[in-house]
Computed example of a mutant assay.
Amino acid sequence: MAFVIRVNPTPAMTAEAYEQVGMRLEQAGAGNPPGLIYHTCYGTRDDLHVFDVWDNREDFDRFSATIVPILQELGFSSGPPEMYELHDSAMGSAAKNTAAVSSAMPASRMGLDGIHRAAHAAFNGRDLHEAVRHFRPDTEYTDHARGLTTKGPAEFIDWMQGWIDAFPDATVEEARYIDSGDHCVATFQGRGTNNGPMGNLPPTGHRMDIGMCEVLRFDSSGRIAGGDMYYDTMSIMVQLGHMQPPMTGSV
């Protein structure tokens, strides 16, 4: 029988501690546990709570045997959880298009394109920790245009922040997603105004509007194991006024 559970950790759990718990669960092979139907974390960044829906008590008890020691090692107690039998549930028509709802679902229920879409929505909303929600601790992501590879969620957050520093209004727009089973390909327009320094180049105030292609690789649990980003740096330099357009030939 499905049931809902609400957990209020003590002391109050911060967003940083929540990310640590998630990484420890991934390392223990319990990042996407059997029997979990729905997971959400809510509250303020300094006081987070958990609300889950589970398919059965047996799977929940097995998961508890993994997460309780992790919480204890990090200095938290889950306390006595509030548990209730599930009477009914429904998902509104807008839920699949809402990043906050999509990112709270287990990866196995979102689809690879849903995970990819939610990560882009989190970037657009400047929730960078949410954008790496489905990263593994060892995820490697390569920006091929710059010859740069990030390792792990923290380095990828720094990479995203670099774009935001250079283009404070940067957004992923007109995205299309192709789920191929263990990869998801996204093509989109990266747009933003260059109001901040980009590396050692000063801001120009010009707009960037560049086609990009991102490929994410997933493991069997629906976690992001790796990624690749492709775009044309010369086009960016021309749009920002740092280069003249290349000559196409003369008559």
Rank of each mutant, 00 (worst) to 15 (best):
P137D: 07
D143G: 04
A119Y: 04
S64F: 02
E26L: 11
Y141E: 10
F188D: 04
G147P: 05
S103V: 09
L86S: 03
V7M: 11
L216T: 11
R117C: 05
E19K: 01
H134E: 01
S221L: 12
R24W: 04
T10R: 15
V215G: 12
F51A: 14
R223N: 12
H134V: 02
L71E: 05
N124H: 08
F3R: 00
Q20L: 12
D143K: 06
M13F: 11
G114M: 04
Y230W: 14
H206P: 02
G29T: 01
P69S: 09
A154T: 13
T40R: 01
M243I: 00
C213G: 07
D59K: 03
G205I: 02
G125P: 06
D219K: 07
A107S: 14
H39N: 05
E16T: 14
P11R: 07
F156C: 08
P33E: 01
H39L: 08
A175F: 01
P203W: 10
K151N: 10
D209F: 04
M1G: 13
P203T: 06
H49G: 00
L71R: 03
G92E: 00
H129S: 07
Q72Y: 04
R24N: 09
S221M: 10
I115K: 00
T233I: 09
F63P: 06
Q244T: 02
